[in-house]
Deep mutational scan, measured.
Amino acid sequence: MPSETPQAEVGPTGCPHRSGPHSAKGSLEKGSPEDKEAKEPLWIRPDAPSRCTWQLGRPASESPHHHTAPAKSPKILPDILKKIGDTPMVRINKIGKKFGLKCELLAKCEFFNAGGSVKDRISLRMIEDAERDGTLKPGDTIIEPTSGNTGIGLALAAAVRGYRCIIVMPEKMSSEKVDVLRALGAEIVRTPTNARFDSPESHVGVAWRLKNEIPNSHILDQYRNASNPLAHYDTTADEILQQCDGKLDMLVASVGTGGTITGIARKLKEKCPGCRIIGVDPEGSILAEPEELNQTEQTTYEVEGIGYDFIPTVLDRTVVDKWFKSNDEEAFTFARMLIAQEGLLCGGSAGSTVAVAVKAAQELQEGQRCVVILPDSVRNYMTKFLSDRWMLQKGFLKEEDLTEKKPWWWHLRVQELGLSAPLTVLPTITCGHTIEILREKGFDQAPVVDEAGVILGMVTLGNMLSSLLAGKVQPSDQVGKVIYKQFKQIRLTDTLGRLSHILEMDHFALVV
């Protein structure tokens, strides 16, 4: 994948999101292997301009796509893939009243899908469409860049269908997702969380590099694949309309690839034109409109599966009536509230959605109805927002919020430890010299600072030695090549209790 991002070429006709291997024109390309080798690009942008032909009021008969309808489940399912879809609609009884809503608040519980998330729908649909058009064949390999849930859905379907599955996901995604993927037989590649989507090191860039190296491999490409919004247009939206008897006044959905909100909203605009569509985008993402909503100094966020630093091709923002931004604290607070007060075992993005819903639905009156999409299960986040310690460490809970008995030293300040200034190293000294210094002084790690004293990161003896043994660096290389740029900081005025929580999850903390 090139470091400079080429513009994806656009073909003359058809839909841009065809499933299957992508040609340089962004659509299915038939021909000899030699032709494909000559024409197939190194990668295709996940934010390529959409060429979708959908228009409100256009006859369904003019759609270029294969459409399906929700099917009634048999008493005995032939395999677990038949437990994807037909998820329950559940009334939220307490939270709406707590925040003064007059309307009825309903939750579409997508964590009841077989793999635990709304992404099971698009995973199965992308595979079925690729099999139907002859792209996927027995023994082929599926590769997908994902925040985890699409990966789980694909790995689940691949396990049943017999495909090899490789999932490329950023490091910030939970260990629970990784464990589930491994249990399903998927191979996992992790990428830096802070890598831009168009960087060769991003999950998108690495996935395309693997595709170019592995024979008979395919990126189904949830960011561009029409099967993504079509899955929701054909099934999720129809289920909502049936469950609500066609009567709903507002739908609120958090947005990642945009397939969920695009597919549902398009069908609702056709069948229930008075329904307002509300999009939820986390602070630090750029999906919301108008652009002024996205202006923030924050560039990272903890909530998973929603928000991006690019506009995915499948996201149709014209069908969203209003956007709201959400933050991590309210997302996790509301997710825990949904679990504790409503018994809905949902993930953090569901918290984002409901946090926005109780604001947006203030305009609705008694007798009206708001539906929220709860995308995934708490299963993926047992060591994250479900953990009091994690919430404390991230600053989303305060010590006084917890009532468990603490040891005698818990409320003492870090400054009472009488710490001395640490050994520091410059980023320009060599790895070999740094190892000598650390061994001589008896230290395992040291902060790396520039000549102005600005902290650049941390270097550890173990990481340097393993990097040297693996051949990633040489003793003569500058130590700046092996620094940890993500590390926890703590102030002298913070409590030892807070430091204790940090050290339970990290090997060190830097006192500043």
Rank of each mutant, 00 (worst) to 15 (best):
D179Q: 01
S27L: 10
K94W: 13
C103F: 05
F112C: 01
D133A: 06
T150I: 04
I92Y: 07
G162S: 07
V206G: 08
R196K: 14
V189D: 06
S199W: 05
G11A: 12
G26F: 12
R164V: 06
P46R: 01
K108H: 01
A155Q: 04
I122L: 05
L28D: 09
Y163P: 00
K30V: 09
T146I: 04
R51D: 08
N216D: 12
E239W: 05
S117F: 04
A130N: 05
E213T: 12
P74R: 08
E62C: 14
V90R: 03
I95Y: 02
M89K: 06
P273H: 08
E9F: 08
K94E: 11
A183G: 13
L105P: 03
L42A: 10
V10K: 13
H66T: 11
L101N: 00
S32R: 14
K98P: 10
Q55G: 11
R132Q: 11
W43L: 15
I127N: 05
A155L: 06
Q243D: 12
L241I: 02
L268F: 07
S19G: 10
A231Q: 07
T193F: 07
V10R: 09
I92F: 14
E4P: 10
G134K: 07
R91K: 14
V160C: 07
A237T: 14
K102F: 00
S202F: 06
L136E: 03
D79Q: 10
Q242Y: 12
N93V: 03
E34T: 10
D120K: 05
D79W: 05
K102D: 05
S227A: 14
A159C: 01
T236S: 08
V118F: 05
R196H: 02
D140S: 11
S73R: 12
G57D: 12
E110M: 04
P70C: 11
C52Y: 02
G258Q: 01
S202R: 04
E144N: 05
A71H: 13
D234C: 01
V90C: 01
S202D: 07
R164S: 14
G139S: 10
S32I: 07
G256S: 02
V90Q: 05
T191G: 01
S254Q: 06
I80Q: 06
V10S: 15
Y223C: 05
G258K: 02
K211W: 07
A231W: 02
V168H: 03
